[in-house]
Write a protein that binds this DNA or RNA. Structure first.
Length: 643
RNA sequence: GCCGGUGUAGCUCAGUUGGCAGAGCAACUGAUUCGUAAUCAGUAGGUCGGUGGUUCGAGUCCACUCACCGGCACCA
């Protein structure tokens, strides 16, 4: 005789065990139709699962925001059922809900084709139309293992066998499809709806381990309503429109070619953008007490063996063998070079600390071919790198200042949504546990003293020390990890850095590693996508395009450009014998933020007709006023992207 | 690196069962002096990613290879 308490506080008594579906029906038909699951004393249950005890419940309908995950999980099951119907020899493995959708990993000899994807999706829709009941059962674990083995589902059997003793093994059945699953699920396949779409098929390793077999992963997206699905598909198109590789071509910023995979050919405009960013960081870090340095790009193998890089990353380093038989490596990092600077010359005193070395160092890493991606993942890149040599007592203040510097720089680049992760010791590392304890404690103290929120990213530290990872969210909600602050007690020891302390004894300095933008290449790519190419004036490589309407304006146009340039603006003039609409289109496609059109009227009145990228409106201004206004705007930073 | 896909003019893309490599835009030449996202006409442009093979004949079929795209793994 369970007594069921509803969210409004009313209580209903039932004669015997009652299901969520029955409770929903007792409240109303419409609710029963839209119900997805039931919350029983805070826990989500299947609607078909009998409630035997008194409980406080709430029916959750399928359009509740927290039901998206469940819908997506159900979509994954429908996908698996469809695949098993179409290709029975396929083994199913796992199929979770993920951000914006779901996937399912299948084991099958023959690869799925894009056409297969269409067949799967069509079959999923049939399964929804069939409205098959979804049943939950609790099985004995050995029986479950035996069952799946007999079915030829060896991956499933392995999963069940790995479940700890004593845990409930729930099995869900829909139609002929039987799957191990934690649940809960919708009561029938019809409730899934049809706001889903299969997107792509790709490879994925069993259990995410490259040593294991490669499975076939089918990705899909799923939403509560068709409108939500359409909105998401539209977002995907938006991301496509912002792709820095496409914009890089349209804006004439850079290119790649086969002879230099993973390297960038920067065009004048693209390189201007990189230079603007570099100058910006240079000014900021100089103001924060950093000294800019430069260290060799090619150094003897022995140095990399001493630093530990050789052991950890030899296969990812470019090397060059010279005539004298020596083996050199192109630097993959700047830190060992900076330690050489610290070690050189007179022994350092505690009075010299902290010493802050910054370098825009060009590094080379032989990244796996499959990882390369436009500017985002390259083999040759420039880091805005720095290393601070300090005493243990100085760690907190130094790391703290780094956080301030980094966050300020992001703000000025237009990123206002930033979060921080604390990456602690990885499995593969150098240094004793005691040293790691100390390094992690020091970094935790530093981040604690900033008052900034952070999450833990377990096991993701560098091989020589723990790190803070700065992640910024772009205009369309994607996350990019850029800056890092790392505490390192190991490299200074390995490379023999020391200073004389107040006590007259030799001590090993602590080394803080820091990057803010990370890779200049990658950050440039992120900015392009963040702003969809519509860069704020201070970042735009060409800020003002002056364009004549007829050749009568040529002399005045040249004068306008020199005035703009004299005011520090990057301006160019277009005197071609083309219609103004042609010029406007061309410079708009190239994303030049400001076009000044000059016709007869402007020449006579010494004005300019100013047109902003993305706007059809024109504003006629006196030349002096326009120059002043643009110069002022070009100094302003921190603007948020417009859509 | 692994799985799958794609490479044809600067860009976007056609190219049938193997039978003379195409279009639009861009470029160039000429005309047009024009008021805010494409003026008109003409010309030129290709080792069909590369190497090897099958064939009388390969953009098309086969093998290898390189690069790129989507994932996975990796990311000091």
């Amino acid at each position: 005789m369970p007594e069921i308490t509803l969210p409004d506080g009313s209580v209903r008594a039932f004669d015997g065990p009652v299901t969520g579906l029955a409770i929903a029906e007792s409240i109303g038909r419409r609710l029963a139709r839209d119900a997805a699951v039931i919350r029983v004393d805070g826990e989500l249950w299947d609607l078909t699962r009998p409630i035997e005890q008194d409980a406080a419940v709430a029916i959750v309908t399928r359009d509740a925001p927290e039901m998206l995950e469940l819908l997506r999980h159900d979509a994954a099951h429908a996908l698996a059922e469809a695949v098993k119907e179409l290709w029975p020899e396929t083994q199913v493995t796992i199929g979770p809900a993920i951000e914006n959708g779901f996937y399912y990993d299948f084991a099958r000899e023959e690869p799925f084709t894009p056409e297969d994807l269409e067949r799967m999706e069509a079959r999923m829709r049939e399964i929804v139309d069939r409205d098959e009941p979804v049943r939950r059962e609790v099985w004995d674990r050995d029986a479950a293992v035996r069952f799946f083995r007999e079915q030829g589902e060896h991956y499933k059997a392995e999963l069940i066998a790995a479940i700890p003793q004593g845990e409930t093994i729930s099995i869900y059945t829909q139609g002929a499809f039987v799957d191990l699953c934690r649940g809960p699920h919708l009561p029938s396949t019809g409730r899934l709806g049809k706001a889903f779409k299969l997107l792509r098929v790709s490879g994925a390793y069993w259990r995410g381990d490259a040593r294991n077999a490669m499975l076939q992963r089918v990705y899909g997206t799923c939403w509560a309503t068709q409108e939500q699905l359409d909105r998401y598909l539209h977002q995907l198109e938006e991301a496509e429109r912002r792709d820095h590789r496409r914009l890089g071509r349209e804006m004439d910023l850079f290119h790649h070619q086969e002879e230099a995979p993973g390297a960038v050919f920067w065009h004048p405009r693209g390189w201007t953008m990189v230079q603007v960013l570099t100058e910006f960081v240079r000014r900021r870090q100089a103001a924060a007490g950093y000294m800019e340095v430069n260290t060799p790009e090619v150094m003897d193998r022995s140095l990399w063996e001493a630093s530990g890089h050789w052991e950890a990353y030899a296969e990812h380093m470019y090397t060059t063998q010279t005539e004298d038989g020596r083996l050199y490596a192109l630097k993959p990092m700047n830190c060992p070079g900076h330690v050489q600077l610290f070690r050189h010359g007179a022994v350092k005193s505690y009075r010299d600390l902290p010493m802050r070395f910054a370098e825009f160092g060009k590094c080379h890493r032989y990244e796996p071919s499959g990882a390369l991606h436009g500017l985002m993942r390259v083999r040759a890149f420039c880091q805005d790198d720095a290393h601070v040599f300090c005493t243990e007592d100085q760690i907190t203040a130094e790391a703290n200042a780094m956080c301030d510097l980094i966050l300020g720089i992001y703000r000025d680049c237009g990123f206002h949504d930033v979060y921080i992760k604390f990456a602690d010791r990885p499995e593969r590392r150098v240094g004793s546990d005691a040293v790691w304890d100390k390094a992690e404690a020091a970094l935790r103290a530093a981040i604690g003293s900033t008052g900034l929120e952070y999450t833990i990213n377990p096991g993701e530290g560098a091989f020589y020390g723990p790190k803070l990872e700065f992640v910024l969210r772009d205009a369309i909600g994607r996350d990019w990890q850029c800056g890092t602050v790392q505490v390192d007690f190991n490299l200074p020891v390995r490379l023999g850095a020391s200073y004389v302390g107040e006590d007259g004894e030799r001590h090993v300095p602590v080394m803080l590693h820091r990057a803010m933008l990370g890779s200049m290449e990658r950050f440039t790519g992120i900015l392009i996508e963040h702003y969809a190419g519509n860069l704020p004036l201070w970042l735009a490589p060409l800020q003002v395009q002056v364009a004549t309407i007829t050749s009568d304006g040529d002399d005045y146009a040249r004068e306008v450009v020199s005035r703009l340039r004299a005011a520090g603006l990057r301006a160019d003039v277009d005197l071609r014998n083309e219609k103004i609409s042609y010029k406007v289109r061309e410079h708009s496609v190239a994303k030049v933020p400001v076009i000044l059109a000059l016709g007869k009227r402007e020449v006579e009145e010494r004005t300019v007709a100013m047109r902003r990228l993305g706007s059809r409106a024109q504003e006629v201004l006196a030349l002096d006023a326009a120059v002043e206004q643009l110069a002022e705007e070009a100094r302003r930073m921190g603007s948020v992207p417009t859509q």
